[in-house]
Design a protein around this nucleic acid. Structure first.
Lengths: 208, 208
DNA sequence: AGAATAAAGTTTACAACGTAAACATAATAA
DNA sequence: TTATTATGTTTACGTTGTAAACTTTATTCT
């Protein structure tokens, strides 16, 4: 117990924790305020003292997941700070495997909770906050693509977006079980990414 | 009215129709059996004579959407039967724009309704039926990739999967409004696909 | 044809859900 | 100490999915 104030202690925090548990066990369909309340040994309307409604709790949990996801992606950095390509590759692999291992998380972040509204145009890629998840991947991708494009932001955005789309789509195909591989899915993912980057670098050589 | 049998006529068909309407208006959250029943001027348990439960209706609607989607993709074929690359490009563009124009459809097919379970391995790409949606795209992609790979199925699957993932992911990013472009999104999509295919073809030339 | 049967729809019932309102209690501030 | 605010509870209501029992209409069998 952290504070042991009031009746419960810290209901808000426990609801987030138990909410994540429930979400992982039963998916979004089974995610109910009343269940979470009872998991916290509290009446079914107590949650309303801490969250405006069900969706507010859900969004809060989304943020929690966001930071876990970010952490996982940063783990892909180890031992390859000096190699932009390897760094980018590892990060993409972390992206896919984290979501495959936590399928519900993908839904929180990218499907059910809408409204990120990240603007993407040649001139500006805006992200909400400085330390935001997307800034992490953006920075990583930038280091790689800059080697080729330099300051040509139009092309670099395109390269970034194409790669992001690819792993994002692969992840969705895996998470929804639209496809499944006979062998190791990560091996495929790696091949796909490597091929993409190979193609990219090779075609760049031609232009020179 | 088609048959004018029994009390209603053809409740099953009308439920599918009204169900699609409701889905487009209120999304999956607002999709309720009781609402649909009342839209058909029928008691709230009448649906159970035609569908085992809510999810059965939902899945049936999914199939309906599938065929609309397939039709849209086939429209991308016109006037370019002899140009595999253009054919593939058009199909990809149709894929994205159809879904962006009908965001809920994407959820039916690729998100909420799971269980496609398409097996993907170098040796075999199995699809459920002959005329299935995925066979359409597969055939189109095959014609293109075969120009380069010939009979090397391992590589051709990889090429197919990479492209599919890319447009699938882009579509998800657009449909969920995770990103939004300043300009015309289809122009970006086209550039991305063209660049992907360019990279692909260029890197292939190098190897020769 | 008329009787038996199956198909389609209705009424009633129940449990789970989200949420609002009124009330109760415990912690903090005056 | 008292007033106030934060936190929880009880009660209530409308909506949902779905099961059971019943009714009405169409089809089938003799």
């Amino acid at each position: 117990m952290k504070k042991q104030l009031y009746h419960h202690g810290d209901l808000r925090a426990e609801m987030i924790k138990k909410g994540i548990q429930l979400l992982n066990k039963e998916g979004y369909e089974g995610f109910s305020l009343r269940k979470i309340a009872s998991m916290c040994n509290v009446s079914h309307t107590a949650p309303y003292r801490h969250f405006k409604n069900k969706n507010e709790l859900y969004k809060t949990i989304g943020q929690e997941i966001h930071s876990k996801f970010k952490e996982a992606m940063l783990d892909g950095r180890e031992g390859c700070e000096s190699d932009p390509r390897k760094h980018l590759l590892n990060m993409c692999k972390q992206y896919v495997s984290f979501m495959v291992n936590n399928p519900e998380y993908f839904r929180y972040i990218f499907i059910t909770v809408h409204g990120h509204e990240i603007s993407v145009s040649p001139e500006d890629i805006r992200f909400e906050e400085e330390g935001h998840l997307f800034n992490v991947s953006k920075k990583c991708a930038k280091e790689y693509f800059e080697q080729f494009y330099g300051n040509d932001s139009a092309d670099w955005v395109l390269g970034f977006l194409a790669l992001w789309s690819m792993i994002h789509g692969l992840t969705l195909l895996l998470v929804t079980r639209t496809i499944h591989f006979q062998g190791d899915y990560l091996a495929y993912a790696e091949k796909m990414i490597e091929a993409h980057l190979d193609h990219f670098e090779n075609s760049f050589l031609i232009k020179l």
